[in-house]
Computed example of a mutant assay.
Amino acid sequence: MSRERIGTDFVRRPGSAWEVLADLVRVAGFASVVAAAIGWGPTDVAVLFLAASAALVLRMLGLRGGVDALTGAVILVAAWSGVLDLYAAIAWWDVAIHVVCTGVIVVVGMLVLARTGVVAHPSAESTPSFVAIALATTLGLALSALWEIVEWLGHNLVDEAIFVDYDDTIGDIVAGGAGAVLAGLLVATVRLERVSPDEDRAR
Rank of each mutant, 00 (worst) to 15 (best):
M60H: 04
L111S: 01
S2H: 12
G179I: 06
D168W: 00
F163P: 02
I149Y: 02
A180Y: 00
L143N: 03
S129Y: 04
R3D: 14
S126V: 04
A55E: 02
A36C: 15
P42F: 06
T169L: 12
G66C: 11
M60F: 07
V174P: 09
D94E: 12
L58I: 09
D44V: 00
L58H: 04
T138V: 13
T138A: 15
S81Y: 02
L63K: 08
I149E: 01
R201E: 13
F30V: 15
S16N: 08
W18M: 11
V187L: 09
T8Q: 07
L56G: 15
L86R: 04
V112N: 02
I162T: 14
G39L: 03
R12P: 02
L48D: 00
V187E: 02
G176W: 03
P197M: 03
A36M: 15
V174W: 12
L86Y: 08
A188V: 01
S32Y: 11
V100A: 11
D85A: 14
E160T: 13
A28S: 09
T169C: 11
L111I: 10
G72D: 04
A96I: 14
V95Y: 07
P122G: 08
V108Y: 00
A54H: 10
P128T: 00
V95D: 05
R115S: 10
S81M: 07
A161E: 07
W93C: 10
T127V: 15
F130C: 08
D85C: 07
V158Y: 03
T169D: 13
I105V: 15
L48Q: 00
S129H: 11
V107P: 03
Y87V: 04
S32A: 15
V104N: 08
A134F: 07
F30T: 13
R64Y: 09
M1F: 12
I149D: 00
S16M: 06
W147C: 07
L113Y: 05
I6A: 14
F49R: 09
L143A: 11
V100S: 02
L61G: 07
W80C: 04
A31Y: 08
A183S: 10
D85T: 14
W92R: 07
P42L: 09
V25Q: 08
G177K: 04
F10A: 14
A134C: 02
E199N: 03
R194L: 14
G177H: 06
S126K: 06
T43G: 13
V47H: 00
G177T: 08
A202N: 13
G177F: 09
V131N: 00
M1Q: 10
V20C: 05
G176F: 05
V164W: 02
G82L: 08
S144K: 10
G103S: 12
L135M: 11
V107W: 06
A180H: 01
V33G: 02
L48C: 00
P122H: 10
G109A: 08
R59F: 03
L135C: 06
A79F: 04
A120Q: 08
D68T: 02
A120L: 02
